[in-house]
């Protein structure tokens, strides 16, 4: 099944207001240090990078490591400057790439 994402961005904000953005994505985050029931190592399969762009400008990025649990929940704050689009991107092992967007109206 494709990765699922859940994004929580306030639909409306006042100009200059600090807003909280919450993101959740489904991913197994297999850390690469485990082996299966016959002792064969399970290859690492994690998300390695997350970025958020606000109207094309990168406002947040994170590097993810094997110790981060499955279905990473990343939350951060930004200042609502103008109406537009927030674009989120997760990239990882085995060519993993997932995008999501959210609209915000700034008054």
């Amino acid at each position: 099944m494709a990765a699922r994402t859940l994004i929580n961005v306030p639909p409306k904000a006042k100009r200059g207001e600090i807003i909280q953005i919450k993101t959740l994505i489904s991913h197994i985050m297999e850390n690469g240090f485990r082996s299966d029931n016959i002792g064969k190592p399970i290859p690492r399969d994690i998300i390695t990078a997350f970025t958020c762009a606000y109207n094309g400008e990168k406002i947040f990025e994170a590097t993810l490591y094997p110790a981060i649990s499955a279905n990473p929940f990343i939350t951060f704050h930004t200042v609502a400057t103008e109406s537009g689009m927030l674009a989120f991107q997760w990239t990882g092992d085995n060519g993993f790439s997932q995008e999501a967007t959210a609209k915000i109206t700034v008054e």
Partner: peptide, 11 residues
């Protein structure tokens, strides 16, 4: 939007 169980519900 933060309950990871919802990811399974969507599936």
């Amino acid at each position: 939007t933060s309950n990871p169980g919802i990811l399974a519900v969507l599936d």
